[in-house]
Amino acid sequence: MMFERFTTSAREVVRGAVAERERLGHRLVGTEHLLLALLDEEISSVAPILRQAGINADHVRADLERRAYGMADLDERDAEALRAIGIDLDAVRSKIEESFGLGALEPPPQRRGRRWPFGGLELSSRFSNRAKKTLELALREAIHLRHREIGAEHILLGVLREGKGLGALILTEAGLDLDELRRRTLSGFSQAA
């Protein structure tokens, strides 16, 4: 199975993504959690590449917090316009959760998917479809590059290649060019060789 090919670092990135999901109180591990784990310099070899590109974990967490409070599709001008007419988004969210329970604004849970054993972890419905796809793409990247193992670099390439998850969206909204970040990551392979 593909997870047997993951390096220790790549396994730590996946475990780190699970820990980020738990820390943030999210239901599913998404590409944003993989991105946060990739930014952890203690476990990820690509953290310096991301840092040099201008992204850090504090920025990602702040972005996720902003999105969690109902402003994902609103920029600050939109939110200010709503406040000007007396609409407080935090109060609306609070009232909905008071009436319908915590998490009432969250999307419905996904049905349970197949379980993928991963070195002591089970990748099941705890992982979003995009996160699962990202890990599959990491394998494809390794195969394409003729690498025997899947490392953190391949996971980053998977996030970039998947391109539609929240992880990639955060990167592009921060002004990063995904193609340029891909080139930098691939360049890291040739420098390591």
Results as ranks from 00 to 15, higher is better:
E149N: 11
A79W: 00
V92N: 00
G86A: 04
D177G: 08
R11L: 08
S187D: 12
P108S: 14
K95W: 07
E173A: 09
D88R: 02
F6P: 02
D63F: 09
D88C: 02
R77P: 01
G165F: 01
R51T: 02
L82G: 02
G175S: 06
T185S: 10
P107F: 10
L186P: 12
A192S: 09
R182S: 07
R21G: 13
S124Y: 05
R112S: 14
S128I: 03
D177P: 08
F100V: 01
A152F: 00
G175K: 04
A168E: 08
R23N: 15
Q52S: 13
A79L: 10
F127C: 11
E4K: 10
L166P: 00
G70A: 10
P48Q: 10
M2D: 09
I55H: 01
E65G: 10
A174Q: 06
R130N: 10
E32K: 06
L38G: 01
M1R: 12
A68T: 13
P109T: 10
T185I: 07
L89G: 00
A79E: 09
R111N: 11
V60P: 00
R11F: 00
K164G: 11
S44I: 05
V29A: 03
F127A: 04
S99W: 05
E98P: 00
G16M: 02
V60T: 01
A81Q: 13
D58K: 09
A57C: 03
L34R: 05
S99C: 07
S190T: 12
D73R: 11
A62Y: 02
G151A: 11
N56H: 05
G70M: 09
R23A: 15
A168N: 06
N129P: 06
L137D: 15
A10S: 05
E162M: 10
E80L: 05
D75V: 03
A57R: 09
H59M: 13
